[in-house]
Amino acid sequence: MKILLPFVAVIALVFLAYAGVGVAKLHFLFGVVLPYAAIAVFIFGFIYRMFIWGKSPVPFSIPTTAGQQKSFPWIKQNKLDNPSSTLGVIGRMALEVLLFRSLFRNTKTELRDGPVLSYGSEKFLWAAGLAFHWSFLIIFVRHFRFFMQDVPVVLQMIEGADSFFQVGAPLLYLTDVVLVAAVTFLVFRRLAMPLIKYISLPADYFPLFLILGIAITGILMRYVTKVHIVGVKELVMGLVSFSPVIPDGIGVIFYIHLFLVSTLLLYFPMSKLMHFGGVFLSPTRNMPANSREVRHVNPWNYPVHVHTYEEYENDFRDKMKKAGLPVEKE
């Protein structure tokens, strides 16, 4: 049920778009209204979520470390795994965001005959995750050729590199293949490993199926059931210049693709996909490990009335002298 529900939901979305455009001819709703709504929800929802998260206090200095902290000058500091400066933190964050460094350290636990508990390196999740995220980014950036009147050389270079092997016509993109393979692996990983399957929720499967749906409709559109691609760009350019047009004869599959993307954008701010913004706000990664040099003040601290020894002595100086107790001030 946990798997079937999101799967059926994505299939239903496909049929909804098919019925809406192919049968009911609601081109304007699926081609203009929903994409605009989705973009607005995505951008404002994203910023709202980040604002809420930004407001939550960090009461403790909690960077996690995996290397030697800054210490005596003759002890070598691990500047990336235990950064004490802003530059080091930027380096660690860059490795985290771009290369998923903490996932790279992922270990698997196995109970072997004996019984012996063994720990081993587990790189498949990291590799598939990295392949998926980078392919997704390149595909996203590549799509900007539909969003710009004059396409910059940089984008054309990315596209050239992506279709380097010149397989077929239109040229096969490597990222298309890698993305589908990686997402499929990530789905099967959840299905095949009993422990992972046990903790997986519909909210884990839905984005995977949805992204797989987007990729498959996109690939179908490029290589199998072709759409009127010039019309597609005309529609998109109409959207970004706020003068929407619905060109004739684009093909339903484009609207299905667009509807799934709109769904992804709508779903984004209210789902686990917010890890896109959240990774930047991970306190264990983005705080410098300088707790011995800089005092971290808990933002929840309220002003405490302190009665110092000086004030105490002022109050009781005479009595203290009479009792023969030593005082600091005469």
Binding site: I39, F42, I43, F46, I47, M50, F144, F147, M148, Q149, D150, E234, M237, G238, V240, S241, F242, S243, V245, G277
Partner: peptide, 17 residues
Amino acid sequence: FLAFFTFPFYYNLGKAN
């Protein structure tokens, strides 16, 4: 974030579709 995701909206300003 905003500059990146609204890029197409201001990049094409004043360009005829």
